[in-house]
């Protein structure tokens, strides 16, 4: 407080010229200056903050796009023994600015019964937290390596299981040419209902 440029505003009131102004006028002028200072400062800071947030929220505008049927295998490649086989899903993929042509984007388990042309397609993504589900040949069941969610070969839940629902079955059709096509969709993880992710 003893410094020559002491910073107590009270010290200013003793200063000559400021005295003859009415105290009321002074404080009103002061208040106006304060309001203006905050307003100008705020207004000046607004554009960078607003632009930053505007761009930051951009991902919310982006959607996955409509799901489509993708050809994943030839019917003959799926043995009709009821045992699921893993197949990669190949699709064109866009990652922000990069376009990938015909790239593996995930995997499905396909199975069919003896002599049947009907194929069951299960997503390899665990409905619990999204890990990649393994097929355990030894125990004849699906098991997720992350939290040990277990599923039957038909994808049914094996209790006790951290997964709130059975494995996600994907729409599947077999074309006249024997190509197995799967509707490639993702579902929200961690909830009991199977909800498509937009």
């Amino acid at each position: 407080m003893a410094r020559p440029h002491g910073n107590d505003p009270a010290a200013l009131t003793g200063h000559g010229a400021a005295n003859h102004r009415a105290a009321g006028g002074e404080s009103r002028r002061d208040l106006l200056a304060k309001v203006l200072a905050v307003a100008c400062g705020g207004l000046a800071t607004l554009p960078p903050v607003a632009a930053g947030l505007w761009a930051f929220l951009d991902p919310l505008r982006r959607t996955r796009g409509a799901a489509s049927f993708l050809s994943v295998a030839d019917l003959a490649a799926i043995p009709d023994d009821g045992m699921p086989r893993q197949f990669p899903v190949i699709a064109d993929r866009v990652d922000a600015w990069t376009g990938f042509a015909a790239e593996p984007v995930g995997a499905v388990y396909l199975s069919r019964e003896k002599g049947s042309r009907e194929v069951r397609a299960l997503s390899a993504t665990c409905p619990h937290a999204g890990c990649f589900i393994d097929l355990e040949k030894a125990t004849q069941c699906f098991r997720c390596p992350c939290h040990n969610s277990s599923f039957t070969l038909e994808g049914g839940i094996v209790n006790p299981s951290p997964s709130p629902r059975a494995m996600d079955e994907l729409e599947c059709r077999v074309g006249a040419n024997g190509q197995v096509e799967v509707k490639w969709q993702k579902f929200r993880a961690g909830v009991a209902e199977k909800v498509v992710q937009g």
Partner: peptide, 23 residues
């Protein structure tokens, strides 16, 4: 030539106006 003032709000106001002008 003029009486002393405090940084807040007098100089801050001038600073803020200058910032706004820059922006």
């Amino acid at each position: 030539t003029k009486p002393d003032a405090m940084f807040w709000p007098d100089q801050v106001l001038k600073d803020a106006v200058a910032m706004l002008a820059v922006m």
